[in-house]
Design a protein around this nucleic acid. Structure first.
Lengths: 277, 277
DNA sequence: CCAATTATGAAACTACTGTTACAGAAGTTA
DNA sequence: TAACTTCTGTAACAGTAGTTTCATAATTGG
């Protein structure tokens, strides 16, 4: 069904007229940007009239120019998001690379750096302040592969502030838990790609109850961000079969460290009480 | 004058209203494609109204939406034209800004590098090969703050090989589980500072049953290393109140990635079977 | 808790873009 | 060269997208 735009051009180019070919050439020359411009600009750059561009697009089999542009955008989107169907076939580098670990860690370092760049200081600070204030209850929830992050954060948050609870995974018990949710509470939701619809629903319900939602997600932004007041994105892309949550954990740990700093006097007491026995 | 769009967002994000921030996050989430879509689509994806998207764009300093789109296209064009100008995402931040997060992440990066240096490639490779061979059962166990790592690894290992089990924390049930342990099995034990005596005991028992033990620990080396055949150390020192396990998680993820590569044909089948339903 | 202020989305508006019809140019064939 | 066919751009048209306004909702400050 959905052939790539560039593919269609190559299939169709033989049967195109002179002006249409120039349009094709122009598009291939600066692909795909030119196709995302208005028709007039496309035409100008390719040295043909708008009408010819339109005919060219029609030849490719698109119903309309906007239709064609949508195809281009979808293609771009898929390129950058491409779930896990990027098989290790692309790993043609020396198969027994003794530096696999080095390579992997270099990428992890990259992800950390990008996460640092992606997170505005104000946002980070706001999250930590919020947690340090210890207002209301702090709820946590995670998805299939991020639940461990929620658990980790829960265990540590317990040491620095009271009123920390985690949402049980089972929907049945969630309803009960929801009864304890109060206006002004805080919720920390973890959601990364293959975003969990259940979490979206949870976020929606929490938002309805006026809970302030903190979202910790990946670079592609969970849809939960719609309901989130604060968002901390990390980078998980590893260019291989699986994404990596190392950067997310580091972000979590940074939040914990900073929050501890902010509430030091309170937290040290709690830690003393919990650690000793 | 000609600042990058992403750069402008970071500059402006602090002063944006809630809806405008959602628009910003949406765009960052699927950058730059969403910005190339019509306003209505942008708005829908970001969960705000068209008007808010327009206001957001105006906040960034663009005269109109088409103007903003042109900037995005120009940016893309320039990126693809200059092949070497890849990495800088316009991040050249102010150097005098002593952000807590930056500092923290710099240290995390340091830890990763040290871990990479500390782990011999042969050791790493041996662990992955061992796991990929799928001989016997693979057991996992962790301590108080590393149990989540064991859980994370368990969840992912399940996708690539059969026979993965985790030791329940309670000593009572551990005795039962020990009955299932066989000669030639593999055990992965996580143990970091404030080393858990229970884990040491467990390791001793497992060693007596001729289980091959893989230890994942910190730079100070858990005493479990006495019984371990293979050891993967990470760095956890953060110079503050708490240690950070980010480097350990990354090591775990590296192991998972490499093991997946080694068993790709088998693993892909398993993943397909598990993911679908 | 109420008033003032600000933010937000629905809907009306307008401007521009994509579309189409048509006339003339270019190329083909007799 | 003349008649015919095919291609191409201009210009008018139609429709959709961007913009603006305004009433209402949400915050903020008193």
């Amino acid at each position: 069904m959905g052939k790539s735009v560039a593919g269609r051009i190559h299939d169709a180019i033989a049967g195109l007229t002179a002006a249409e070919k120039r349009a094709a050439r122009g598009l291939l020359g600066s692909y795909p940007t030119l196709g995302l411009a208005p028709v007039a600009e496309f035409a100008l750059h390719a040295g043909v009239s708008s009408a010819s561009v339109l005919r060219f697009v029609a030849q490719l089999g698109y119903k309309s120019y906007p239709d064609f542009q949508r195809a281009l955008r979808d293609e771009m989107e898929q390129r950058s998001k491409s779930p896990l169907q990027r098989s290790p076939t692309g790993i043609s580098e020396s198969p027994d690379d003794p530096r696999f670990l080095d390579h992997f860690i270099a990428q992890a370092v990259d992800n950390l750096r990008r996460a640092a760049a992606l997170i505005p200081a104000s946002e980070f600070e706001a999250v930590c302040t919020r947690l340090a204030e210890s207002r209301g209850t702090c709820w946590l929830a995670g998805g299939r592969f991020t639940d461990f992050l929620a658990g980790y954060m829960e265990a540590h948050l317990r040491l620095i502030r009271p009123g920390v609870r985690r949402f049980d995974g089972r929907p049945a018990t969630q309803a009960d838990q929801m009864l304890d949710v109060r206006d002004g509470d805080t919720a920390i939701i973890f959601d990364v790609r293959r975003y969990d619809p259940a979490l979206l629903q949870l976020a929606s319900d929490l938002a309805a109850k006026r809970v302030q939602i903190v979202l910790i997600t990946d670079e592609w932004m969970s849809p939960v961000s719609r309901f989130a007041k604060l968002v901390l994105p990390g980078y998980t892309e590893m260019g291989r079969t699986w994404d990596a949550n190392g950067a997310l954990l580091t972000v979590v740990e940074a939040v914990l460290a900073r929050t501890t700093e902010l509430t030091w006097t309170t937290a040290s007491k709690r830690m003393g009480a919990i650690e000793r026995p």
